[in-house]
Design a protein around this nucleic acid. Structure first.
Lengths: 252, 252
DNA sequence: ATATGTTTGGTTGTCCTACAACTATACAAA
DNA sequence: TTTGTATAGTTGTAGGACAACCAAACATAT
């Protein structure tokens, strides 16, 4: 009978769809901070789902500090500044404009991370970073394997700072970058650019090996900047993948 | 009849307690990446709650990318590097050690944010920042009002970068800082330190007003460093608040 | 013996009802 | 005016039922 179900993106489970729906409503100013949300019963009826689904969505929003539920009263929208979790909407991240700003943040973080890593990296850290670098150079094209190695390279540098908060933040940003690239994959398999990319990583590595803080910062800053430019130049980034395309296949 | 209920921290609702429980289990390596979690029925029975509660908790963990649930199969632990959200455990944040690292990250971010803000701030941005500064100077003691103004000062600088990602990150860190300070509040009401704190903010503001990028970076870097030292010196930060003390009262 | 359907048990996804815990408001009584 | 009480409404939790789905064992046909 499956009637309306798979109009579009029916693969994703309901609670997350409801959660992002409410999130968007709030972001759009449909519900102002301090304002009360509709009751769970109302939401359930309005959206045509059970209250259980609503509760799972609300539970997530509350965990993120987006809303604040009070038993016996209702749920209220909190000020966006007081969120207790960072989560990006990957739909809005698919535009060059957002990516540009994300790369600016990335540059700031990883530049300083590289500087700290140059000062603090252990011999083991250096070895792990080297492995990622080698794995990256091995690949000819810009494909899954080399992308993964690329991200590992950056993550391991962050780990070498011996600061778990920095590591967490860099991992998070890397993950967002990965998602964005996944979409526009195979756009620029130009061998020259791949080689340039590897060369930049080598320079960062050499600075880390030498323990040269300033060189590490500068080579990393230059690399992030260039990487941003390369993605910026790639076509096919403003694709309007209307809703919830992001289905995870295999995973084995 | 309320028997066992308020043994300890019974105010928090069950799903979030279950979620943080499972999170801790995973963090402790009790469940390795790729490993399968117990079924929802098993978890429900083991923890003595209904499956609904388990589902709300699992729903949150999945939204954070901590686990990956496959219908008809089970839920599996994901690699911590692939999290899709940043959320800090505030219990572990109550140690000086963690706070130190958090302030290192904060310093990196806000230093560069101040630099960007000096270059990009509009006249309105400047006005908002000035308001926060005035509100901060008005207070004599280091109490709620001035703490709030202090945070607003930092947030507004981040907003002036015109980069919403930077703004989001700074807001998040500010919120974590606030939570940490809330605990150790009223520890150092020394008027001298408060004055020093205000003076540092003034210096940052003047750099922003002048549009001096380098001065903005240096004054902000110095301020974050000093602020970290001041909190570091404050007593009562290693309190062992065993479980889920974090109840939100009033909120009116 | 290999390949191809088919069954079966188990797991997550969704729905439903019921009740407990709690709160704000209105109303009644002192 | 103040205080206590009832009431209706909201979120929190429990439990059962079934749908959707999957993996592995089993049966059948080639």
């Amino acid at each position: 009978m499956r009637q309306i179900s798979h109009k579009i993106g029916a693969t994703q489970h309901l609670p997350s769809k409801v959660a992002s729906f409410i999130t968007r409503e709030i972001a759009a100013g449909r519900y102002q901070p301090g304002e009360q949300l509709p009751t769970e019963h109302q939401l359930a009826e309005t959206l045509g789902v059970s209250r259980n689904v609503i509760r799972e969505a609300v539970s997530q929003l509350r965990a993120d500090g987006v809303i604040h539920a009070r038993q016996g009263v209702g749920a209220f929208v909190m000020e966006p500044e007081r969120r207790s979790a960072i989560r990006f909407d990957r739909e809005t991240l698919k535009t060059n404009d957002s990516l540009k700003r994300l790369f600016e943040l990335r540059g700031i973080l990883e530049t300083e991370a590289a500087g700290l890593a140059a000062a603090r990296r252990s011999a083991e850290d250096l070895k792990t970073i080297k492995q990622a670098l080698d794995r990256m150079s091995g690949e000819e094209r810009w494909q899954d394997g080399s992308i993964e190695a690329d991200l590992i390279f950056h993550r391991e540098i962050a780990r070498a700072t011996a600061n778990d908060y920095i590591y967490t933040f860099v991992c998070f940003i890397c993950e967002e970058i990965r998602q964005s690239i996944q979409i526009a994959r195979y756009t620029n398999p130009l061998p020259e650019l791949v080689e340039v990319n590897v060369a930049e990583h080598v320079r960062v590595y050499e600075a880390l090996e030498a323990g040269d803080v300033e060189a590490a910062r500068q080579t990393m800053r230059a690399h992030i900047w260039n990487a941003g430019m390369r993605i910026d130049a790639a076509p096919g980034n403003t694709a309007d993948i209307s809703m919830t395309k992001q289905d995870e296949r295999d995973e084995k």
